[in-house]
Design a protein around this nucleic acid. Structure first.
Lengths: 200, 200, 200, 200
DNA sequence: GATGAATGAGAATTCATTCAT
DNA sequence: CATGAATGAATTCTCATTCAT
């Protein structure tokens, strides 16, 4: 079914284009025309693939999260020890700071929009679920460590929330000012701090 | 005999109104007319006090930060021990989660806009400076603890950055989902974690 | 009656200010506030002296024309010979080019507005009357010359109209481009041409 | 398959509509919506063809001048004798009084705006160039007459400036008051006067 | 009288979306 | 399917005018 593949490909292209444009201009300032141009297609064509700007935004959220999760899965695959997984997890997070910069700039918009449940109920739901999943994933790693005795933690979900929060907060701070702190030093210090905090 | 009006007072009123409206609708969706209405004045009057929507936004940023800082100063006044200051600092931060909810929703917009230096260079600069000041303030507390031997920390600025990041990230997560975690439990765990991390 | 004199004085000041501001910015772009500022008074005070912007504009027209006529009267007083009067009249017109530059810039607006009878019926009427009076005045000079045998002219009113037209057109051209022609050369040539055209 | 539209045709339609609306209401009073309505299109469509109201005004100036020049070229084509050309030139000018009435009303606005170099530098430049070209064209006719001995004139450019000025001034006067003078009588008298003034 | 703070009608401009081709 | 011309709702900002003091 080559047609389906083709449509899917184009859909993906538009999403990529949207990410770049939204990252550059911000969701509200970004024009659908700019997205189309970036994707190398006509303005009207975007609407063949996405119902509206909001829809595109929503789908982009899912798409980006899926890509991010894929990335993590690949990078974390095969590691056995919970501590090693956690260390690698943090390292990957710091990698994304640099590599996925546009990704996070768009996330600023997701946060800003999702914070207003009234206006963007669907996005807020998505954001909640995404956070819940992420917390669960990280909590699972911690729980595994607790189980095998390498970690000590009364509330893995809470710990997961705070780890995620720290990483979010760091990308926020770093994207506002690349000189806020040294990425490598921060990664090392943070890793040590978190692992020590989980020590039995 | 010109009409005597407390221009400063009115300016503040408009800023308060803007905060509420921006918090509710988001900066971009918010209409200047809505701000005026919220302030109980006419549309044109807003422009007597602020040059433009952008200007209002910018001034609001400074105003909100100043208020926040005031709040912290008052709450932290008189505490002597660095560890006590830090503990109280975190506690105050968690207080603000609930009380200053609109404040943080608007901050989402500051971050989203400030992340785009191209569009909002002035805001970005403001954001950078604000972060730098906050880091310096927290770092100073830590450094004081290092000096009096109650803390051990190789890089207070780095530690400050990560503490601030965690708090930012938590408010982000919590505003997206009030059920993400229990505020009190998180505060306690986090406080312990941070203080233990700084133990000599 | 010093009060009346005072009010009259202020009225005149406002008119002068309006002329300068209208000349600089154009009638439509000019703000009433700028007129007030130029006159050194408060914005509201202008409305104590003039009902509206349109009213101010209208009165300014009359005021400027009266001043112009005064100027001509003084300069032409005492000259006896029709040819000498006409020559002097043209010379005075050229003088005004330089000296009354703002005056004519405002006249551009009178013409532009007065051309639209629908919008500015009163101004159009004023403009018509002013032109009629000017034509009659110049025609009278020519008629005097015809009477005393120094001129020959079948239709003094028509000749007057064309003389006035030439002067208007020249100021128009000159204010658009000060290098369009040399004022002195033009004055001489024009004077000769007109006088020769009226030679018996 | 994009919709095939004669963009040039539509552009011209909008310009024609703008001319009518600007002539009726004046540039500043005219609303872009009125222009759109007159052109039978939507408000936003005008902006697909012209960047702004100012841009539309500027392009209209060039467009109108080009049309006027075309008209003159056609009417003057094939005439050989300088005196005949000049006579015809004046006759055509008087024709335009009646036929191109909206044209000249809009020109009032060009003059009023162009006189303020600060506000409308581009228009002023255009106006200057247009005048310079017109002077050169008329001067060339006179110079040709001087060359073949049919005219005598020391300064054709100066003469051209004054001829153009007279015509401009007459249209100004006539549009303010259609009863100011009889067009035909004026044309005849003026033609005679100018030709006599150029007699060897 | 004088003032300038307040106002809101009004206008330019933008841009998501539609739809004829 | 793809396109981009057309659209008008929506929004920012301006400024003449009013009126309480």
């Amino acid at each position: 079914m080559p047609i389906i593949v083709d449509k899917d490909r184009k859909r993906r292209d538009i999403l990529q284009a949207a990410m770049r444009v939204f990252a550059r201009d911000g969701y509200h300032r970004a024009k659908m025309e700019a997205v189309a141009e970036e994707a190398g297609i006509g303005k009207g064509t975007v609407y063949e693939y996405f119902k509206s700007k909001t829809d595109l935004f929503l789908v982009l959220h899912d798409h980006m999260l899926a890509e991010l999760k894929d990335f993590y899965m690949k990078e974390l695959a095969g590691i056995q020890q919970p501590a090693a997984i956690l260390e690698r997890f943090i390292a990957v997070a710091f990698q994304t700071f640099r590599v996925w910069e546009p990704f996070f700039l768009v996330f600023f918009d997701f946060w800003a929009e999702g914070g207003r449940g009234e206006q963007q109920a669907l996005l807020q739901t998505r954001l909640r679920e995404a956070y819940a999943v992420a917390r669960a994933d990280v909590a699972a790693i911690i729980a595994a460590g607790v189980k095998d005795g390498s970690f000590r933690c009364d509330n893995p979900s809470l710990a997961a929330a705070s780890i995620l929060a720290t990483l979010d907060g760091l990308v926020l701070q770093w994207l506002c000012d690349r000189d806020a702190f040294d990425l490598d030093a921060m990664r090392e210090t943070l890793t040590q701090g978190i692992l020590r905090g989980l020590q039995p």
